[in-house]
């Protein structure tokens, strides 16, 4: 997934390229660990492609092949519907997080207003509050708004993020204040400046933030379970839980559901692998 760009760019230096027995040792070690990592994925795929009465019969041997179980998981497990719900919620949250973070980060970096430091501290403090604490109260809140079983209920608590605000603010701070002052003299408003100057500057960070938001929303487990009482509004995670809780006697069906649930995110990650590395490392930036 992570591309080895450096290998091509820098000529190999003697001390960095193992040879002979050492290379063999490394290969064996890498192969062994790769085998361990791939093993659960392998058994899952094998099971998903086997008919029910074969699944316990030598689970390591692939075949006989059938696509029926995958089809079954798709239709009776209603995974199509759940995937759609997950996509809608994840996209809405991602777009909103990007927008709200941009605005807030810009305000913190470029505007002077009383209590700015204090407010920024409050923002950062929210990063430390785990979901578990706010869960019960938030559920009541969403309920009283009549938003159970709705996309807005699934998304609302996550439409802003202090993490994203912090991330973008760090980049905005590198913008010279003179630039903004000059733009102001030319009659460019804040929104215009944001659109034409600031956003282009943070575009790579935005991509990383977007992917990070998408993944975190997609992977949510407790919250969707909590505010959904209609099966139609399950996300793919709670849908999988539903499938598993009632079908332990059909492990191949559950595994087929797992495969279907995992594929879209594999595709997303392969397409956006550059943003992924950036997104994950974004948190490690110093400062």
């Amino acid at each position: 997934m992570a591309t080895d760009t450096r290998a091509a760019a820098i000529p190999a230096v003697g001390f960095d390229r193992p040879r002979g027995w050492r290379a063999l040792g490394r290969y064996s070690l890498l192969l062994f660990v790769a085998f361990l990592v791939l093993f659960p994925i392998y058994t899952t795929i094998v099971a998903a492609l086997k008919p029910g009465n074969e699944v316990l019969n030598d689970p390591l041997r692939p075949g006989p092949f059938t696509l029926d179980v995958l089809r079954d998981a798709w239709s009776t497990g209603r995974l199509g519907r759940y995937l759609l719900n997950s996509f809608v919620v994840a996209i809405v949250v991602t777009v909103c997080q990007v927008v709200t973070s941009l605005l807030a980060a810009y305000a913190f970096a470029m505007l002077d207003f009383p209590g700015r430091t204090l407010l920024f501290g409050v923002f950062l403090a929210t990063l430390l509050v785990p979901l578990e604490v706010t869960l019960v109260v938030n559920r009541r809140l969403i309920d009283s708004l009549g938003w159970l079983n709705t996309y807005q209920g699934l998304a609302a608590p996550f439409l802003a993020t202090a993490f994203g605000t912090f991330l973008l603010r760090q980049v905005f701070l590198t913008l010279p204040r003179d630039l903004r002052d000059a733009a102001a003299i030319d009659g460019v408003g804040h929104l215009g400046f944001l659109r034409h100057v600031a956003i282009p500057l943070v575009r790579p960070t935005l991509g990383a933030l977007a992917l990070f938001s998408f993944l975190s929303t997609w992977n949510q487990y407790l919250w969707p379970n909590l505010i959904t009482t209609e099966a139609d509004k399950n996300t793919v995670q709670s849908g999988l839980r539903l499938l598993a809780s009632t079908n332990l006697d059909e492990p191949n069906l559950v595994m087929a559901g797992t495969v279907i649930a995992a594929i879209p995110i594999f595709v997303v990650l392969i397409v956006f692998q550059r943003q992924l590395v950036r997104g994950l490392t974004a948190g490690a930036v110093k400062g």
């Binding site: 927008v99 709200t100 973070s101 605005l103 807030a104 810009y106 305000a107 913190f108 505007l111 407010l119 409050v122 923002f123 929210t126 509050v129 604490v133 706010t134 019960v136 109260v137 938030n138 809140l141 609302a156 608590p157 996550f158 439409l159 802003a160 202090a162 605000t165 804040h190």
Partner: peptide, 17 residues
């Protein structure tokens, strides 16, 4: 510009806390 973020964070993080 802060309002949207502030609204969400206060409503769904600080108040529930």
């Amino acid at each position: 510009m802060l309002a949207p973020s502030l609204l969400i964070l206060v409503t769904f993080v600080l108040y529930p806390l």
